[in-house]
């Protein structure tokens, strides 16, 4: 694969970030990139932190745990924002187009990057589904907790009626 230096990664990451942020924000308002405070802009912070990691891994070694952890941070937020999986993992499909623009010549070597992107998208999709399933599980759990002690009371009342 073509060697990509840090400066180039930064450039690509920046271009990608802008697009991701734009497609994430509702009504097309690019708000997320503005505030650096992780506590005042948790969403933007998560994207800013993790997108470059995803990019590094796709362009580099494809360290799956590291890639998955970074993807998860982003997808977890998307999973409570856009129920359509296509929207939630869309950001990965934006990358090849940015790369194409950046690199102009699309050599055979860079096909590998494309493959990496696809793999990352599959991982992201799985993570997304896991998050959605978690939400359903949490709903059930919350409903149970809401009356957890009451259930016990009813069991007691059945066991030893007054």
């Amino acid at each position: 694969m073509r060697a990509v230096d840090n400066a180039e990664i930064d450039g690509i990451a920046k271009a990608w970030l802008i697009q991701v942020v734009q497609s994430f924000s509702l009504q097309g308002q690019p708000f997320l990139e503005q505030k650096k405070d992780p506590f005042r802009n948790p969403m933007g912070h998560a994207i800013q932190e993790n997108l470059p990691i995803v990019l590094q891994e796709i362009l580099g070694g494809m360290n799956r745990p590291r890639l998955a952890a970074a993807l998860e941070a982003i997808v977890r937020i998307r999973a409570v924002q856009e129920a359509a999986p296509s929207k939630a993992v869309e950001f990965l499909f934006q990358l090849p187009l940015i790369l194409r623009e950046q690199w102009k010549a699309w050599s055979a070597e860079q096909e590998e990057v494309l493959q990496h992107t696809q793999q990352a998208a599959l991982i992201a999709f799985d993570l997304y589904m896991a998050c959605r399933e978690k939400i359903f599980a949490l709903q059930a759990d919350e409903a149970r907790r809401r009356t957890a002690q009451l259930e016990r009371v009813y069991q007691r009342m059945e066991a030893e009626p007054r």
């Binding site: 697009q19 734009q22 097309g28 924002q81 296509s86 869309e90 934006q94 187009l97």
Partner: peptide, 18 residues
């Protein structure tokens, strides 16, 4: 969250602009 399953056409139309 969209209330319908996206069509194949919609799937390929990825938004790049606000």
């Amino acid at each position: 969250m969209s209330d319908h399953a996206p069509s194949p056409q919609e799937l390929v139309q990825i938004t790049y602009q606000p």
